[in-house]
Write a protein that binds this DNA or RNA. Sequence first.
DNA 1: CAGGGCATGTGAAACCTTTCACAATAAGAA
DNA 2: TTCTTATTGTGAAAGGTTTCACATGCCCTG
Lengths: 218, 218
Amino acid sequence: MVKKSDGKRKISESTIKRLSLYYRALSLLEKENQETISSKELARREKLTPAQVRKDLSFFGSFGTRGLGYPVSELKQQISEILGVNRVWNVAMVGVGNIGSALVSYKEFQKQGFIIKLIFDNDQRKIGSNHKGLIVSDIREMARLLREHHIEIVILAVPAIVAQYIVDEVVAAGIKAILNFAPINLQVPPDVYLRTENMSMELEYLSFTLTNRRPPAE
Amino acid sequence: MVKKSDGKRKISESTIKRLSLYYRALSLLEKENQETISSKELARREKLTPAQVRKDLSFFGSFGTRGLGYPVSELKQQISEILGVNRVWNVAMVGVGNIGSALVSYKEFQKQGFIIKLIFDNDQRKIGSNHKGLIVSDIREMARLLREHHIEIVILAVPAIVAQYIVDEVVAAGIKAILNFAPINLQVPPDVYLRTENMSMELEYLSFTLTNRRPPAE
DNA sequence: CAGGGCATGTGAAACCTTTCACAATAAGAA
DNA sequence: TTCTTATTGTGAAAGGTTTCACATGCCCTG
């Protein structure tokens, strides 16, 4: 129940990503009114091993009951605290092209507490237009508006060619966490956390798998 | 230059994903008319180590010249063959909500040779409507149309609640590769390759990092 | 055409992650 | 209360990935 003493435990990226999976699964289980779940069943649902589930959770504490499993609601709550999603995050979207406007309407982000408060673009035709109740702001006002609205995370959905330029502005405005959808590797200072979502990568992975799968017969 | 004898080399997922990064970087370098690149410089651009770049490439052959580096165009061509993106892949989109229609317009997929040929939905109001030159088809016609158009990859952008039902239909239609954008873990037979793109996961990762970063001072 | 410089290709070492295997222990039955 | 059953929590082992370090060998200069 109690968290471990916070030594300089280094938690791996894979563990954090799996916590997201557990969180999603637990949310579903909670809706189904299931009270407890074993590592075995949780692992089956997320295509992992029971040992992995237990090991992942053990980095953060002892949440289960031997012989019984984990209490669904309580574990979900614990993971939400670990991931920091037990609160609201103010988010701004930069770029209102296809991807940007789709993500503004994407309810999953809101459900997890990531609330898009501001939208920016540099296209005069888009500035002032309404997207899901939000008015598109001029990117030249970004620094001031980000500060005024206490934005902590910026989602970048601009063309690759301008992405580095825009990210420099975002960094200059004091933002420390950026989720980038432009298909390019951006350079940021070491105190800024940048994650790049590369949607082509997954298609290329499928392409690789189809291309290199063992032939139908020998 | 010549590929290694195809033993039962097991190539790791991370290596394949990095090949995607190299491919993207090389495409840019080619546009900039750079003729050669060293592992050191390629690593710097993608925030990796030179040794990693060389090791990754060495699984597939010897593409570089000692003392000089790798020939940009040639290496790009080689990687495109490895990833299987030196050809066109026929793709179908299932679901024309926010994400689905954004991805239909996403030029990056086309540029990489992933051509969306068909769009499906089950909403009568959407069926027959035009998205970027493609008419939305009735999902009940999916099996026939997928076969007729030689579709090899399906992108799934439907609500989580119906995703398992739809993916069962896609599998029944004989599709072996699926890219899923629904935030849920889907079950497919072992001969079907499924990748799930979880966009909330990256935001949650940022949330975790912001929440657990070392405090400003001690 | 020989020699210096440079960057590759690659075994081996270091490091990291996952899996194993079992002691610990809570719940419920008898 | 004691016993049985189930499942956790976790060191240790196994397995996998990254980094090191250097021999190799190509290019270019003189």
